[in-house]
Design a protein around this nucleic acid. Structure first.
Ligand SMILES: [Zn+2]
Ligand SMILES: [Zn+2]
Ligand SMILES: [Zn+2]
Ligand SMILES: [Zn+2]
Lengths: 163, 163
DNA sequence: GAGATATTATAAGTAAGCTTACGATCTATC
DNA sequence: GATAGATCGTAAGCTTACTTATAATATCTC
């Protein structure tokens, strides 16, 4: 509920507002970039926003099927591609799944994901604090890093206290 | 060729020796743990060792099919599970693929993977130098990290110089 | 309002990743 | 040498992930 969103979604956060803000943000981003935030793109984003869990493409389809004629895979993939290209959705590599980005971070700035093994929720933290160490480790091997995937599994605060 | 293996496999390294050492190491590990390094497990590891590229399960099957009756998926998955459980193989999450571990690192110590976009080779670097920063970033959100997936794509030394 | 461009719908298909089920064999261990 | 546990073979099937291809709309531009 605070203005600065926490890295990990609190169980008691105002998710309605959380969703609304994300949609508003998406509209703004598309406006800014002269990109069209079409109905299907909005619906896919809404499906992902329904939780802070990453959804596989077919889970998105299932989610959408609840409120519309079941979309074809290609339809969803196109929307996901669009949303990712515009920094509105992240792909969680270790899950082959997609997560709505609830933050207003720079599209180029790297993030790390915190994946709770117990409840499945996923949070984002900025990678800036440790990105340098990461890149340095790569460069010391003569490797030129371009994109880093950092996905940390563990237990979130809430699940730790409710063991 | 040096004793301390480089993080990224050099194009001119003695791969025969590299493979032989990895197999010897695997034998030793299994011996130590009273685990059986059966023929199929050895063959799967050898298939992965044939390159420093991560192979998908079906690529492993294809590789094995060259020198034996085509194994069933389950056969390969069982062997992969065994090899991973014993720290002889890593799973590259961003590729859904498996990589033979050529290093003698502690099974519990985290590693990061360097994935060359051009040649597909993958190197390992110890995550120790930046693991602390990583864990701290997670803990600052009250998150208890257990396992980190760090996969860095970019360009390896060799491919940089041979643009 | 004609033509170009972007987006979506429809249909079908490919292939990877992984599992379930069950019987056979092999290997300790008593 | 009987029993239990581990491993492997065989067969089949399921789900997810993603693509190709083509036709239909919608939107923009002149
Ligand atoms: Zn984000
Ligand atoms: Zn949790
Ligand atoms: Zn390793
Ligand atoms: Zn390379």
């Amino acid at each position: 509920m605070s203005l600065a969103k926490p890295a990990f979604p609190a169980p008691d956060h105002d998710h309605g507002r959380c969703t609304a803000e994300a949609l508003t943000h998406a509209e703004a981003v598309c406006e800014q970039r002269s990109q069209k935030f079409t109905p299907i793109r909005r619906q896919v984003l809404q499906a992902l926003l329904s939780s802070h869990r990453p959804l596989g493409a077919y889970e998105v389809i299932d989610e959408l099927a609840k409120s519309m004629p079941r979309p074809a895979p290609i339809t969803v993939y196109r929307a996901l591609d669009f949303l990712m290209a515009n920094g509105l959705v992240h792909r969680i590599e270790s899950r082959n799944a997609y997560l709505a980005c609830a933050h207003d971070h720079d599209a180029t700035s790297a993030v790390a994901f915190l994946i709770c093994e117990r409840c499945g929720l996923v949070g984002e933290v900025p990678a800036a604090p440790f990105a340098q160490g990461l890149n340095q480790a790569a460069r010391s091997s003569g490797f030129a890093p371009r994109l880093s995937v950092v996905e940390i599994t563990g237990t979130c605060t809430h699940c730790q206290t409710h063991a």
